[in-house]
């Protein structure tokens, strides 16, 4: 898998070299993911792991990507910059990357859930959607 979506900054030649530099933090994170998945199945409790809170070197990303793999779902959200929500090859484990308008990472999470919340339509947005729809229908009626 790659949490590094192509829309993010292009990896340079040095990045290839860097991809072998690791802090050794990938393994504990992956164990945390496993534990979270057990909890999800047992109690339905969802977990979010903030990858920004852990020192990660490119080598760690490589390990993480190799172990988790690429799954079935990949959604690109356009919300003040792109967000990538992707299920990994381990169903129930999602990669959520928030990018800003410049394509730079704002934050990166691993969510262990059946459905990441950000994918769902939010009630307030739906309310505003209803208002918009009503407005547009009104305008259509006016035209008639």
């Amino acid at each position: 898998m790659d949490c590094n979506h192509p829309s993010a900054k292009k990896p340079s030649a040095t990045a290839d070299v860097l991809s072998f530099v690791a802090t050794g933090n990938a393994s504990p994170v992956l164990h945390e993911v496993k534990h979270a998945l057990i909890q999800l199945l047992k109690t339905g409790a969802e977990s979010v792991i903030d990858l920004g809170a852990i020192p990660f070197a490119p080598g760690d990303d490589r390990v993480l990507n190799e172990i988790l793999g690429i799954g079935e779902v990949h959604a690109t959200l356009t919300v003040m910059g792109e967000s990538h929500v992707r299920e990994t090859a381990i169903p129930g484990v999602w990669c959520v990357d928030h990018l800003d308008e410049n394509g730079e990472y704002q934050s990166r999470f691993i969510e262990v859930t059946y459905m990441p919340n950000i994918l769902k339509t939010q009630r307030e947005d739906a309310e505003r959607g209803l208002e918009t729809l009503a407005e547009r229908l009104g305008a259509l009626d006016d035209r008639r």
């Binding site: 919300v79 003040m80 928030h98 704002q106 339509t121 939010q122 009630r123």
Partner: peptide, 12 residues
């Protein structure tokens, strides 16, 4: 600004 964007902002 959508609620979803707000949520994204809050997460970041």
């Amino acid at each position: 600004v959508s609620r979803r964007a707000f949520l994204k902002y809050c997460a970041s």
